[in-house]
Design a binder for these strands. Structure first.
Lengths: 336, 336
DNA sequence: CTGAAAGCGCTTACAG
DNA sequence: CTGAAAGCGCTTACAG
């Protein structure tokens, strides 16, 4: 029964108008402290909780933020989602989750539907969101934050980590561990993250005289393509002693390929991934990786979004987070 | 601009009342075909999309379902969430995600907030939801579906898989592969899944004369406790040759413990998990597991929920899904 | 088959 | 500091 109480019931019980009740709830306009007290008492007594939908209709904000990501099944995203949900929940907001499969059209469709549900804002962890969609949202004053987007003309906050520097960390580490011939399996070049990591690799390895363009092979940021990439590399260069994979999933694939061929890791070949997902602690050997602060990125994106929701759309910022090298057995220096 | 069109604009353009427009949109009451055509034309021309919030306020349903699970970071849940979202999305519904950390109080709080947002229904993949909360929801006519709940008096649809039979499959398989001394690391006994799996284990092993109660040790369904459980077992029984872990995460932990001690899997000890999460293909050796149809469970739960949303609350059903044994290297028969 | 009107439960200028 | 009233954009009896 308690949930049936409405603002009118509160007003009646407190002997004031609904406007006054609304004011004490929203704490915007000033209200006489004594009046407020009466209202609060009535709210308490009736166990009143405001109807979010009615409030949403009146104010065009439902207290919901949308998180659109490629696929929650990709082990990178649960940590991100949790980071988002934790800070959202702390602020009393709920989060809607959408899987886009990196399809621009699905993203557009989510936007269309969710705008009509008056979500307060969007977080896109997506590589395929359309420029036009972003612009349209901005124009309508709907906050949006992007993760890992390119630095096109996009005029909204972007959160990402320092991929290029991270790649350099990885490659330098492999060199430090004694690797002389380091290959790279790079990710889809539509993704800025993949491009930056490739650049970082080239920054270090490219200047070496042993470098050859055929030391790099493409992958799709998944396990299977990592395995195939490693196989290609091994076929070309039996003397490879280090593999820097563009992300952890491909590193796992590389590990599998090496294991199948009976090549020992780290003794014969060392492997390093990128991202810092939980999987890297599961493999045998455990994987060295360049860890992004995934959970924190989700939280930060949410905080930035909340700022825009409260203070209105701001100018576009790019926030770049530091990554950290996590060294594990897969790159351990051996006595080879 | 297009998004500013309202039902009134459509009505005006079509030369009818808003009631009529509403009728053709909702296809409930009959409308003269020709009139309907005019309306459709106007809708098309104005690119009209109904305002879900206004509709929600009037009809007490926002076209949103809530999925409350313990923690999206637990690798079991992304597949479930994806299953839910895929069928929800196909029906034009959006899904709100909440992490409960298996805290009854957090679940209550989600319910309280989300009821006020007029979510159409709830899916709880949670072991701690309170009986009273379920009853209250039912009483108010709000659909709810549970995953993996006990068969208490709970009067709502429950989806789960056949855990006991699955455990028997696992243990029989270990026996078939030549294991004589099979231990079990069981999960938290508050969870019906954990209880059932333990029962299944006992069904098979309990009748053996070699059985001892100390062949079973507790765990918390996570990697670390799996590792510790295995260590305990090995300390007690150096001759153990098979471990059935109550879930995949604990199996991964057991694998780690065995590896650290230099005990070869599957040659010396065979290991089998339960759940069928993706991790089982990452480990070395890859893990044999009893796979639940996780993705399908999510989809099914959603379909059942949608039925209730459309047809009103039904009686309580328990749907039990079959599991399948997926054999991999960790239980391969060797020449030991 | 269709329209006028009330109602869903809030917020927010506008007066006072 | 506070109230009356309009408005947010729909749905749904109720008449006709």
């Amino acid at each position: 029964m308690e949930s049936l109480a409405t603002i009118r019931d509160v007003a009646r019980l407190a002997g004031v108008s609904v406007a006054t009740v609304s004011r004490v709830i929203n704490q915007k306009d000033l209200v006489n402290p004594e009046t407020a007290e009466q209202v609060l008492k009535a709210i308490e007594q009736l166990q009143y909780v405001p109807n979010a939908v009615a409030r949403g209709l009146a104010g065009k904000k439902m207290g919901i933020i949308a998180l659109i990501l490629p696929d929650i099944l990709n082990p990178f995203f649960p940590a991100l989602a949790r980071g988002v949900e934790d800070v959202a929940h702390k602020q009393g907001l709920t989060v809607i989750l959408g899987n886009s499969d990196d399809l621009g059209i699905k993203e557009s469709s989510y936007i269309k539907v969710l705008k009509k549900k008056y979500v307060d804002g969007f977080i896109f962890a997506s590589n395929t969101i359309r420029e036009e969609d972003v612009m349209a949202l901005r124009r309508e004053g709907i906050p949006i934050v992007l993760l890992d987007r390119g630095l096109t003309t996009t005029a909204c906050p972007i959160i990402r980590s320092n991929n290029r520097e991270g790649a350099k960390l990885a490659v330098r580490h492999l060199i430090d561990q004694g690797c002389r011939r380091i290959a790279h399996i790079y990710g889809p070049q539509e993704f800025i993250t993949a491009r930056e990591r490739l650049l970082g690799y080239e920054d270090i390895v490219g200047e070496s005289k042993d470098f050859s363009p055929s030391l790099i092979v493409p992958g799709h940021f998944d396990i299977e393509s990592g395995r195939r990439g490693a196989e290609q590399l091994l076929a070309r260069y039996p003397d490879i002693d280090g593999i820097f994979a563009g992300n952890d999933l491909m590193a796992v694939g590389a590990l599998k390929a090496l294991h199948e061929r009976g090549i020992r890791v780290p003794e014969e070949v060392k492997v390093c991934g990128f991202d810092g997902i939980g999987l890297t602690e599961i493999t045998e050997p455990e994987l060295t990786t360049v860890a992004q602060p995934i959970y924190e990125m989700g939280g930060l994106a949410t905080r930035v979004l909340l700022d825009e929701i409260e203070s209105g759309i701001s100018e576009n910022t790019i926030i770049e987070l530091d990554v950290t090298l996590v060294t594990r057995k897969s790159t351990r220096r051996g006595q080879n």
